[in-house]
Amino acid sequence: MRIPALLRLPPRRLLALAIPWFVACSPKGDEKPVIGLITKTASNPFFVKMKEGAEQAAAAQGATLIAAAGRSDGDNAGQVTAIENLMAAGAKAILISASDSKAIVPAINKARDAGILVIALDSPTDPVDATDALFATDNYKAGQLIGQYAKARLGATPAKIATLDLIPGHPTGAQRHNGFLSGFGLPSYEKTRNELAQPPEVVCMTDAMGDQAKGQTAMENCLQAHPDINVVYAVNEPSAAGAFNALKNAGKEKGVLIVSVDGSCRGVQNVVYGALTATAQQYPLRMAELGVEAAMTFIKTATKASGYVDTGVQLIAKDSVAGVASLGAEKALGLCWGDK
């Protein structure tokens, strides 16, 4: 998931309301099975890519894909409405990236009771088994990859780490943060813990909400307190770009390692430019393809997908180091999401 800056906006259900219309207006007669895709937002490039992949896969397999989205990350009501409308539209399977992992569960239960296959993409529900299956990035592993890389690059130099985190209590933010520390070889928390570990090497730990401007402010303040920071972990690429700005303004962009997670086209380009040392790339297209495939299997054979499927994460770095496998930035550009 590319974490957008957090909106505090009222729920928007218009998109979801449009679904029955769409279905009513499509030509009758062709009995194409309907697959629903519900994303957190319709505008975030990560979900745009996911929708693209799902549409292509559905078209190739002879199914109709209906996409719906909440207005903003956190818009649970909009997603509940979307589930209800997809049920009314006769969807056989629903792929969903839940905005609110707990609050969405009752609506998902209703759909599953009606015999619909529900697969979580990108974000797990709480509890995880509220959906039939989960196809997602392993965020802890993503963190570990960039942690290992940063440690290998830093070598024996004592680490002074700044972490630009998401918001308190967000599972994605906690998994990436704790994974990074674990990969770095520092004492950290296990995957399931929702708090952030802070070993003494982390000299500045601050929330930047995944936003570029807030990331810059946070990094500036960290540098005031600790001018000798040599490793920066940022929860996503926009906040990493903010951190690079702060370092550049302070004349410290050389020699500080900046690592992050996402693999968006802009992030990978920053790896090429040297504004980002390394990133862990995730694959929304693959989540969507696997999701549609599982849906078609269910529609054709009534076999339900189950459990967790890791959709893969790959370390992207300009300079490879011994002992840590990484993909060059040029190759990663072919796999990135968002505008190039």
Binding site: P4, A5, Q212, P238, A241, N245
Partner: peptide
Amino acid sequence: SIARTGVGDPQSGQTENL
């Protein structure tokens, strides 16, 4: 905001009203 961050960011301004 452009001058400070060096980019035109469509995600900016979301908490500025409050």
